[in-house]
Amino acid sequence: MMPRKRLGRTDIDISTLGLGTVKFGRNQSLKYPAPFELPSDETLRDLLACARDMGVNLVDTAPAYGYSEERLGELLRKERKNWVISTKVGEEFEADKFSGEGKSYFDYSAKHTRLSVERSMRRLRTDYLDLVLIHSDGNDMEILTQTPVIHTLQQLKQEGWIRAFGISSKTLEGGMLAAELCDTVMLTYNPGHTEEEPVIAKSAQHDTAVLLKKVLASGHICHDASPVQGAAQAFHGANAPEPDPIQGAFDFAYAHAGVTSAIIGTVNLQHLRANLMKALRAQNLA
């Protein structure tokens, strides 16, 4: 079973692996290696059941993930209490049904933040949200210091609408500041992207939770295993065996004690089962 850790300073316990759900509701304007069709409800039920049976209780979504929130609201409505739901504010995605493409726009105003949280609760069929992250447009410092979004989320937490808040950051500077201001920081960390690693240590100092995104480099980890191979050679020498890039990515992620949970997304049940076992193995639990 997937172990659990406390979400920073909160009283929320989350599994050390969480299920990302962008592919539950959006297949336009994404950076995955190959196009895909949105999965059926039956497929999603099987994925959620597999994750739940392996001890996963964290599910991550966002308004910018197309229909993900609505689909999760229906799929989880009878077992809401068994899940820790993380969603986001700030980014809106508009799909173009004719061109097959879409575009995002961002709004960090107090009014939009409140409206977004209210809408997410309706879509997810819940009267509270466990975790709300700011969906950064890349200007982390401006968002955190020059918009009212942090203050608004603090108010919503005080009012009981949300239990915790944070940011899905994109810069080292933003992540470092967020470690002081937020309950949670979500950051990119994998063998090919280590620039934000200092945020993990800073978060530990402030008892701030760290969620990892793009652990498998949005699926590209299998297409460019050179960072994993390099790490293996540094440890084993030039005769290092050809590594499993996915196992290597999980080993890399969980080697850092400051990591609370790693978020992975898939709509392939076989891949999910394999990744769950590799995540356990990386934590020396399989």
Results as ranks from 00 to 15, higher is better:
L17D: 11
G18Q: 03
G18C: 07
G18Y: 08
L19N: 10
T21D: 13
V22A: 06
K23H: 07
N27H: 13
Q28D: 07
Q28R: 03
S29C: 09
S29V: 01
S29K: 01
L30C: 04
L30P: 05
K31F: 13
P33R: 06
P33D: 12
P35Q: 07
P35T: 02
P35H: 03
E37V: 03
E37D: 13
E37G: 06
L38N: 04
L38I: 06
L38S: 05
P39G: 10
P39C: 06
S40N: 13
S40T: 15
S40C: 14
D41S: 13
D41Y: 10
D41I: 04
D41W: 05
E42I: 07
E42R: 08
E42C: 00
T43H: 04
T43P: 02
L44W: 09
D46I: 08
L47F: 11
L47V: 03
L47P: 04
L47K: 03
L48D: 14
A49P: 08
A49G: 03
C50W: 11
A51N: 09
A51V: 10
R52S: 10
M54L: 08
M54Y: 15
M54E: 15
G55C: 04
G55P: 01
G55E: 11
V56Y: 04
V56P: 05
V56G: 04
L58H: 07
L58S: 04
L58V: 02
D60Q: 01
A62G: 07
A62E: 12
A62D: 08
A64G: 07
G66T: 01
G66K: 05
G66Y: 09
Y67P: 08
Y67H: 09
S68F: 03
E69R: 00
E69Q: 02
E70I: 03
E70G: 13
E70W: 02
R71V: 12
R71Y: 12
L72H: 04
G73K: 01
G73E: 09
G73H: 02
E74K: 09
L75W: 10
L75Y: 12
L75E: 14
L76A: 12
L76M: 11
L76H: 06
R77Y: 06
R77A: 12
K78E: 15
K78P: 01
K78G: 09
R80A: 14
R80L: 15
R80Q: 15
K81I: 00
N82G: 06
N82S: 11
W83I: 09
I85C: 14
I85L: 15
K88Q: 12
G90L: 03
F93N: 03
E94Q: 08
D96M: 10
D96L: 12
